[in-house]
Each structure stands twice: as C-alpha cells, then as structure tokens.
Simulated scan of single mutants.
Amino acid sequence: MAGSLPIVITPPSPTGGRRVRVDGEILGLAMSLRDVVEFLRRAGMDDITEEDVILSGMIEWRGGGPDVWSAP
C-alpha cells in the first residue's frame, strides 16, 4: 500500500459509521469497508483494495476491526 501516513478508523458512532482519519485529517464517515477504500483512494492511495485495508498493519482500527460498523 502506498504512503506511510498514520491511518485511524475510529470506533463506530452511536448512529452508525466510523470516521476515517489520515495524518490527523478526517476524510469522512465510512459506513462500510468500501467507503474506507474510497476515502483512501481520494487521499492518493490509488491502488488500495478492500483486502489491503483489512490486512494492512498501517491502519489502526479502534473499537473493533474491519467487520464492525455499528456501536454495541
């Protein structure tokens, strides 16, 4: 995966979705893994895939991994 900026996916919000942050900047509220991929593509990671997002050690998943999209 291109780039070395810190990528953080925040815990799910009470209304659903997770904020995607790159280098401290919020890129948007992702409702699915597909949204995370799209936000990262717009941030310049053109070749990123859903598999990259799931397996990357560069992404810090807070409050659950890539399969958690709603608050407990």
Rank of each mutant, 00 (worst) to 15 (best):
A2G: 06
G3D: 09
G3I: 03
L5V: 06
L5G: 14
P6C: 04
I7C: 10
V8C: 09
V8T: 14
I9E: 08
I9Q: 02
I9R: 00
T10Y: 10
P11V: 02
P11G: 04
P11N: 05
P12M: 04
G16Q: 05
G17P: 03
R19Q: 12
V20S: 01
R21C: 10
R21M: 15
R21L: 15
V22P: 02
V22A: 10
D23H: 13
D23I: 01
E25G: 01
E25Y: 08
L27E: 03
L29Q: 07
L29R: 11
L29F: 04
M31F: 13
L33S: 02
L33G: 15
D35M: 04
D35A: 11
D35W: 05
V36K: 02
E38S: 10
F39R: 05
R41N: 01
R41C: 01
R41S: 00
R42A: 13
R42I: 07
G44Y: 00
M45G: 04
M45P: 00
M45C: 05
M45Q: 09
D47A: 15
I48D: 01
I48F: 03
E50Y: 06
E51A: 14
E51W: 08
D52Q: 06
V53Y: 07
V53H: 04
I54N: 01
L55H: 12
L55N: 14
S56M: 02
G57F: 02
G57W: 03
G57H: 11
G57Y: 06
G57T: 13
M58E: 15
M58G: 08
W61P: 11
R62P: 03
G63Q: 00
G65V: 00
G65R: 03
P66Y: 12
P66D: 08
V68C: 00
W69D: 09
A71Y: 12
P72H: 02
P72K: 00
